[in-house]
């Protein structure tokens, strides 16, 4: 991946120190979710990232939150994040207007197993805000589409008005080198698409289970049901990858906030193979 300019010193000498980025663009995705495009300080570029990694975004006087990188790996000068208002930190980040400053440190965590995917069918299942962390992986696959087998995307959201990256999803629907199914939990009469769980769409997805890798991101109950269904369909559990979210504080493996069984999600995650987390997923409070 090429980087333009010198990398900003985000995770450099002092790993706690955020670099001030400027909000360049702010797009409202839904009533409570926005996509921010951030610019690194003049003369620098955002550090290279792997699809699936996250940054810690900071608002002065409010606090920090872990937010996945949602941008196109082929456009390394633009740092893109999609943020849903969950509490005071995300509210402040989502409210940042163009020209305002957002602190950034990262990128952190393991990414999607991009090296594992060439030559294989790829099934991507996103629930709600699970799409933004998967978007860099999807764009990377689409940029070198010939290297992969079939590409099946299933995207579920709470309601039609909660769908993010709507225009891009519509554009993907028109492509003939990927199949995308969109489903929602409930809808009014103005929705002619599917209503139901993402797992209900799996039987309509076309893939060869034994040669499939699957990337899953979304609410934990959805991850559990989907991983189980994929394994039942014959996808090897070590080829099913889930992005697990846990509350983060330091994001550098020091504070233990993100503990998930024996793992610190900020270090060994957020992406885990299903085979490694299946037992923990089936237990509560891990």
């Amino acid at each position: 991946m090429s980087i333009v300019g010198e990398a900003a010193p985000a995770a450099g000498s002092n790993p706690w120190w955020p670099t001030p980025y400027r909000v360049e663009r702010r797009v409202a995705e839904t009533g409570d979710t926005v996509t921010l495009t951030l610019r690194a300080p003049t003369g620098t570029a955002p550090p290279a990232f792997a699809p699936g990694q996250f940054n810690m975004l900071y608002r002065f006087g409010v606090g920090e939150a872990a937010i996945s990188i949602a941008g196109d790996p082929a456009r390394p000068t633009e740092l893109v994040h999609t943020v849903r208002v969950a509490g005071k930190v995300t509210e402040s980040i989502a409210g940042a207007a163009p020209g305002e400053t957002v602190g950034v440190r990262g990128p952190y965590g393991t990414g999607w197993p991009m090296d594992d995917l060439p030559g294989r069918d790829v099934v991507v299942v996103a629930g709600g805000l699970g799409l933004p962390p998967l978007r860099p992986a999807l764009l990377a696959i689409l940029a070198r589409r010939e290297r992969y087998g079939r590409l099946e995307v299933i995207y579920g959201a709470r309601s039609p008005k909660d769908l993010v990256f709507y225009d891009e999803v519509q554009a993907w629907r028109r492509r003939d080198d990927l199949r995308i199914q969109v489903t929602v939990d409930a809808a009014g009469r103005d929705w002619y698409g599917d209503v139901g769980l993402v797992t209900a769409r799996l039987p309509d997805a076309r893939f060869e289970p034994a040669r499939t890798s699957a990337l899953l991101c979304g609410p934990e109950i959805m991850l559990r049901l989907t991983a189980r269904a994929l394994e039942q369909a014959g996808v090897p559990p070590e080829r099913i990858f889930l992005s697990m979210e846990r509350n983060m504080k330091c994001a550098i493996g020091l504070c233990g906030h993100c503990q998930f069984g024996p793992d610190f999600v900020c270090r060994t995650g957020p992406v885990f193979p299903y085979a490694a987390v299946r037992d923990r997923l089936d237990r509560r409070e891990v």
Partner: peptide, 8 residues
């Protein structure tokens, strides 16, 4: 899923 409103 609908009751838990899991996407929030």
């Amino acid at each position: 899923v609908q009751v838990l409103d899991v996407h929030r």
